[in-house]
Design a binder for these strands. Structure first.
Lengths: 228, 228
DNA sequence: TAAAAAAACTGACATATATCATATTTTAGA
DNA sequence: TCTAAAATATGATATATGTCAGTTTTTTTA
């Protein structure tokens, strides 16, 4: 099994603040897992008892509403850490995480992370900063959900996806989303998402080939996102 | 000026984890302020450079959307602390806080809080827990905003307000919200909020006398919030 | 207290979006 | 490869909600 000390992925998250010693201890107690596309990392109500460090792949993090509809809260990719929240507040998971492609993740048990949080202020501060940032983004999403139209939100989503995920030379975004996933990110009915995406396609703003897609006209999408 | 060591308000927030010594230092550098109803504690883009501890009163925390409409993200009351986020991420405020009644607040400068975060793991952990909790709530709000109807959200809002704020013997909730405020919490047009509130009133679920209001039928409101 | 301004309210109407039904295409499984 | 199932697509229709316009009530201020 690979060692945390040598793992590039940690550069992208709070674990980079751990000392060599601390990393060795983490490495010794971590476990590696392969999560197949469509399978859950964890589900609402699970006691996670640790955090996941994403080595490769993408997952969608979602929650069921009382209406029985699913809402995707965020997409998590290589380098991200997930599960800190339930660990910190010592509660079962509030969200469900499902792999969008085959994933490689490392699981670090709770006790180890808690130990580091207690002993390494730099690490704690980094986790704190991370959370402050997530919270800021969440607030912005609330505003968008409450005040923007579905079309605006969909346009914005497309732009954000392009910025967040890798793009191949010919512009294809490295991400496998179903139309239902799009709908569940934006918070609309699948049919509405399909209609709007077709419309964007017709207008030459995006290109879809099955689930592969690329952004053709960012400027126009930005304008739509702003309400024009 | 009153001393933090003797202040009851700190019992309700992370400051309770500070030692007597630390509290004395905080007390020595804090400043007290009176914020008049309708006046801002801070506004989007301000560099706050510290945190506010709310000694008395309520404020609304909101953000402008690109559409030019205002969204209230949360209501902050006695005992709450606000401003930690910009402090931690060292960024200008992302939100605006405006007093809903006359407020009494203490301002603690950034350096003092940073010092405590560095030296007192219990305090840091408490701030971390607080933030994890806020984040969980934010996620739930996102789901509601995305998936519930305006009517559902308004019903839910009413219930939450009753639970969060003091209620007099005759059931009146100690909170001064305009119809526009209600609309901006729920994320709808003022007219729509007015219409739905009148409807709830007609059906005997709430009672309004000007801005004073009380919940008459929590059970029914809960059912509406769940979509019935 | 009167006048002006702001807030609350009501109605008419437009429209974005959900829902339901059905057709077509793609994917997965035997 | 064939079949069944799932995903995508499209149309018709219903409905929730936004917008605009105007009235009434409340609050502010001169």
């Amino acid at each position: 099994m690979s060692k945390c000390e040598q793992c590039i992925v940690k550069q992208f998250n709070s674990l980079k603040h751990l000392s060599r010693e601390e990393l060795k201890r983490v490495s010794a107690c971590k476990t590696s897992k392969i999560i197949k596309k469509g399978k859950p990392l964890f589900e609402e109500g699970d006691r996670i008892n640790g955090v996941f460090c994403i080595k490769d792949g993408v997952c969608k993090v979602s929650k069921m509403s009382e209406n029985g509809r699913n809402q995707i809260i965020s997409l998590i990719k290589k380098g991200d850490i997930i599960g800190e929240r339930s660990l910190i507040s010592d509660e079962p998971a509030n969200l469900t995480a499902i792999a969008l492609d085959d994933m490689e993740v490392c699981f670090i048990p709770k006790e180890e992370i808690i130990k580091d949080l207690e002993k390494n202020p730099g690490f704690t501060m980094s986790v704190l900063k991370d959370m402050a940032n997530t919270l800021k983004k969440a607030d912005n999403v609330i505003v968008d959900m409450a005040q923007k139209t579905v079309k605006q939100r969909l346009a914005e989503t497309l732009i954000r996806l392009k910025d967040k995920f890798d793009v191949t030379d010919d512009g294809i975004i490295n991400l496998q989303l179903s139309r239902e996933d799009f709908a569940n990110i934006v918070g609309t009915a699948t049919e509405s998402a399909i209609r709007l995406l077709s419309d964007f396609k017709k207008r030459g703003l995006v290109e879809f080939k099955g689930k592969e897609f690329k952004i053709l006209d960012t400027k126009s999408l930005e304008k739509i996102a702003q309400g024009f």
